[in-house]
Design a protein around this nucleic acid. Structure first.
Lengths: 305, 305
DNA sequence: GCTTTTGATTGACTGAGTCAACTAAATTGA
DNA sequence: TCAATTTAGTTGACTCAGTCAATCAAAAGC
């Protein structure tokens, strides 16, 4: 559950931006086009060759309504439609020369409007605002998100992120108390304080600058590698990141000459358990505990390398 | 003249957010209210006692249209209108009990919608998005006033946040290596693991769900309170949060009967040093160290209570 | 080959939003 | 001071943006 204060802020912003966009969009009033018209023409101009279905989906428009708009645009010779050879029902929409100049006219108007607004701002403010806009879009627009997550070694702040995300996750999902976050912090802190790059490692899964997951291998002595703090953020579940992280651990441990990997987990973490099992780990012991409040089944798994 | 690339980005964002808001606002479809209705009711609910003119101006609505909406609301007994004694033409609008519960219903819906969207995001993304929203609003909305910062006890995730933000800050600003983050994690982890609510405390400065600063008091034994991990985020410097946090520590330590507060810091942290000095701390020892890479001057300060 | 699904269109409607004219109170100014 | 002007809000008359259901035709599924 997200912090209510965050949600309230988001709503405030939405109210503000609804007004703000309404103000901007008033500008279409002195053209024979509605905002919707402009959006449609813009979309066709920007993605030459779209079909009506995609347009309706992207702009959240009623197909019937869109159909009428397109018909009018065809009559006014702003666009041309030819049937898609691959699908005779569908049609490929392109702007005509006249349509393109109208499209560009919209562009100029919109540019001028924003430029006028930006010109009233202080030095650096436009840059800061646009930067923030890009941030929001990268987060909220699923299409703007770079598809690929990468796995990289840890750097400054990552260990803190691990503590924070695990602390939150176990508290929210399983009601574990703050002692758990404390344990994670201690484990992670010791890892950093005594970090031995020859035998230890931390992997962070990241997408577009946002951390999504983590795991670390610490030296348990006696040829045993300890796999710890495996975590995949809820936003990135199902992408196979957990498996990738565990695979990295196994490969690393083999390479470094460990003879066994050992890990401790809890039985309610089904996804994690499935990953361990599939990777060849076997359950060696199990004990009930109440270390962090609610009762849970702690499990130790090992993999012989 | 503003950079065209900035303007293009702003336009992209506006297009995206037009869609996004359109999507959110579809939700009003299964109520007998339109988006405009909801905005009007919201505005009256939020600013009890507005008059129609102000409403029309704020929401950019046609007075005629607004008049009809208000008439309907009066008929449905969602609002009440009584003439302004200072100006008999104007009328003061207030929500009735029924109106208020409808207003709250809108609030719940909007909250739930945003919460649902945020729940699909990665860890930290909602905070980042809201932070960016606030940035935009602060820049574009002349009448936006930043929410007040509050100071509260820690909860799940906060300790991780402390580790992360300090780890990042010292690495970026002073080139300290990861051993420092490790130390912070250990200190913070021990604090949680052995937390003694009677004699220890953690304060988090927060503004609208975003953490801005922290400090903690741990029991050093022998009647000495240890002030640790004082931090104020870049975005919140100059608001006096550092002083507030330290004041909390002093008041708490006095209340709990400590006879002295002791803290360790580094000489290059001028702002922090000024706060300690002003609060009455005195420098008792100083030593050169290279605990975290670059050479630095560690200092111990104490305050007798 | 039959049924179902999908892309697009048309008919029929409605109600959100607009524009102009109007009333009544407040303000202005010679 | 009182006629002229401005301001706050209302009403009449209208329109056109947007919706919903039905339909057609091509494609896909079984």
């Amino acid at each position: 559950m997200t912090d209510p204060a965050l949600i309230e802020s988001a709503r405030e912003f939405n109210r503000f931006y609804t007004n703000f966009l309404g103000l901007l969009n008033k500008a279409y009033l002195d053209t024979p086009f509605t905002l919707t018209d402009a959006r449609v023409l813009f979309e066709i101009g920007a993605h030459d060759g779209v079909n009506a279905g995609a347009l309706a989906r992207d702009l959240q428009l009623d197909p019937a309504y869109l159909s009428r708009i397109l018909k009018r645009f065809r009559e006014e010779e702003l666009i041309e439609a030819r049937p898609d050879p691959a699908d005779q029902r569908s049609q490929i929409l392109t702007v005509t020369g006249k349509g393109r100049s109208q499209f560009e006219e919209f562009g100029h108007r919109a540019n001028a409007q924003i430029a006028a607004r930006f010109d009233t701002l202080a030095d650096g403010e436009p840059e800061a605002a646009v930067d923030a806009m890009r941030t929001i879009r990268a987060i909220l627009d699923p299409q703007a998100k770079p598809a690929a997550a990468i796995i990289r070694p840890h750097r400054a702040g990552d260990i803190g992120w691990i503590v924070q995300s695990q602390g939150r996750f176990y508290a929210e999902e399983y009601g574990w108390d703050l002692r758990f976050e404390g344990l994670v912090a201690e484990v992670a802190g010791k890892f950093l304080a005594n970090f031995d790059p020859a035998m230890e490692y931390c992997w962070i899964a990241e997408r577009g600058g946002i951390n999504l997951g983590s795991v670390l291998i610490t030296n348990g002595g006696d040829g045993i590698a300890k796999l710890r703090l495996l975590y995949v953020d809820k936003a990135a579940r199902g992408l196979g990141l957990g498996k990738q992280l565990v695979d990295e651990c196994i490969a690393f441990s083999r390479r470094k000459g460990y003879r066994q990997i050992s890990l401790w987990t809890n039985d309610f973490l089904h996804t994690a358990r499935a990953i361990y099992q599939k990777a060849g780990f076997r359950l060696v012991s199990e004990e009930r505990h109440r270390m962090f409040g609610p009762e849970a089944n702690g499990q130790t798994w090992v993999l012989d390398l």
